[in-house]
């Protein structure tokens, strides 16, 4: 039985001034979570009625401003139209655990996800897309970085080139700012998930929870626009060893992504 995280989720949404909240492996019901999100909130969150079982999505956008595009195995694609600025696509992700999967599975899943995103972008006529969630992969794994996967690079300038042609096929870039958060230099933790595998190759910290942006969103994203959260309203999410405290909170640390108003001109 997991610890109910509703109060922490609600507190973090208020602390961050969140407009959209996505949760993976949430045991609480939609109504329980809504109660915590809307407790004391100035504007209410609405649940996403179509989100797949593995994901919960809540947003403060009025339902008429949210357009469901595509739900698949471990992902949900939505278009949000803010009152000001251009519409954008948000892809919430929770890819399956590595427990029963091979690396090839992840490469194929990421390729399928990349294809679904490109189809959604073609349908909506723009590439103002952000993907976020639990990928169950690190930024350096091939599903995340390879051209036939999500093609997410660590350098804005490379991402800004928008595409790269590999073996005659054009692949769009994502920018992955989580590369810059690997290691403990910029924060209190070196990742979002800690696991001591005991194997010869042991990363200890993993950056499984990530946010990727298309180049057309880079102008709306500052370098400090992404944060790994270690404290919510005075509750420390880390234990004495500095690892996620699973007794008090989740085994994954939450991530906040902040975008400024998106200019209409960016496609």
């Amino acid at each position: 039985m997991r610890k109910p995280l509703g109060p922490l989720v609600g507190a973090l949404a208020r602390q961050a001034g969140a407009d959209i909240v996505t949760l993976a492996e949430c045991d609480a019901t939609v109504s329980e979570t809504l109660e915590h999100l809307n407790n004391g909130a100035e504007s209410f969150f609405f649940p996403d009625q179509l989100a797949p079982d593995r994901l919960r999505i809540f947003s403060r956008f009025l339902p008429k401003s949210v357009r469901p595009i595509h739900d698949g195995y471990g992902f949900a694609i939505r278009q949000y139209t803010p009152p000001l600025g251009a519409a954008f696509l948000m892809v919430a992700v929770h890819l399956p655990s590595k427990l029963h999967r091979e690396e090839d599975d992840y490469n194929l899943l990421c390729g399928q996800l990349a294809r679904a995103i490109e189809e959604a972008e073609a349908k909506m006529g723009h590439s103002r897309t952000v993907i976020l969630g639990d990928f169950n992969m690190n930024p350096f794994e091939s599903g995340m970085a390879a051209a036939n996967g999500l093609h997410a690079v660590m350098d804005r300038r490379i991402a800004a080139k928008e595409t790269r042609t590999v073996l005659g096929t054009r692949h769009k870039f994502f920018y992955n700012p989580m590369w810059g958060r690997l290691g403990d230099v910029r924060g209190r933790t070196a990742g979002t998930f800690f696991y001591d595998s005991g194997k010869a190759l042991n990363f200890y910290w993993n950056m499984l929870d990530q946010a990727l942006l298309r180049p057309s969103l880079l102008d709306a994203f500052d370098d400090d626009g992404i944060k790994i959260v270690t404290e919510i309203g005075g509750t420390n999410l880390l234990n004495a060893s500095g690892h996620p405290d699973t007794r008090r909170a989740s085994d994954h640390l939450p991530v906040i992504v902040q975008l400024r108003q998106i200019e209409e001109a960016t496609a």
């Binding site: 179509l50 357009r67 595509h70 698949g72 194929l108 399928q112 679904a116 349908k123």
Partner: peptide, 13 residues
């Protein structure tokens, strides 16, 4: 009726 919303039921390979 929902703007061609898509729900992927399964994939085969």
């Amino acid at each position: 009726g929902l703007n061609d919303y898509r729900y992927t039921v399964l994939t085969v390979r």
